[in-house]
Design a binder for these strands. Structure first.
Length: 225
DNA sequence: GCATTAACAGCCG
DNA sequence: CGGCTGTTAATGC
């Protein structure tokens, strides 16, 4: 379990909770470290925790019929995920794996259920998160067929600094080009070319092992219209 | 053709 | 030195 101050610093949803609710929540949360390449869960696992990224970087994805890894997106510090499987009481839909050494906060299901029942603020957080994810999903559907490598990289960058879903991320993302490639489902070289293309258009600035976002809106729409 | 893997040199921390 | 980056060449769908 963790203390109240730590919980508040790693969880946006904790901001609106009463002291009593924080106290109850913190007792149900523990921190666990995952080494690069380690899985939090596999598809079809029964995994009864809600998870939040403290630091590091995770990704979620799947494996297609041919055995190839398919990435859906990145999970940056501040992002909480997995509520879908908890709410529906069913197995995981995705693999979740660490792209580098990552610390996760894990909340047990009884605590999650209790917060859902007890706290309006907690429910408001969940609704906001669902809404944001739905917007992303629709944008994906719209352009899924036509997105080239550069657009996929652009959208993954935009997703990583989504202020609603990942409120702790600033404009700067600490990520290597190899990790960005893994997230976006392209090779490291293609990620490199995409970054330089986006930099040339003024949407990002590329730095050593990090990317600074200049225009998140255009990044999120890149390749559409 | 476009994207990927492989390989290598240069750079940064 | 070890990890990251920028390029190029060869290969695959």
């Amino acid at each position: 379990m963790i203390d109240a101050a730590e919980l508040k610093s790693i969880a946006a949803w904790a901001q609106g909770l009463s002291d009593a609710e924080i106290e109850r929540a913190r007792r149900g949360v523990s921190i666990k470290t995952f080494g690069r390449g380690a899985h939090l869960c596999h598809r079809d696992d029964k995994f009864e925790h809600w998870a939040g990224v403290v630091d590091g970087l995770m990704k979620f994805g799947s494996t297609d019929a041919a055995g190839r890894v398919v990435s859906f997106g990145g999970l940056p510090p501040g992002m909480w995920f997995g509520e879908g499987s908890l709410l529906k009481n069913e197995a995981r839909q995705y693999d979740v794996v660490a792209l580098r050494d990552t610390r996760l906060a894990l909340m047990n299901k009884p605590t999650f259920d209790w917060l859902c029942d007890a706290s309006v603020a907690f429910n408001r957080y969940l609704v906001r998160q669902f809404n944001e994810r739905l917007g992303l999903f629709i944008a994906l559907l719209e352009h899924a067929r036509t997105l080239d490598a550069t657009a996929r990289v652009a959208r993954n960058i935009a997703w990583l600094i989504n202020p609603v879903i990942a409120p702790r991320a600033g404009d700067r993302i600490e990520i290597s080009q190899e990790e960005l490639g893994l997230l976006s489902g392209v090779s490291r070289q293609a990620a490199n070319a995409a970054l330089r293309q986006l930099a040339a258009e003024g949407l990002v600035t590329v730095d050593h092992r990090s990317v600074i976002v200049r225009d998140r809106t255009r990044l999120a729409r890149y390749g559409g219209e």
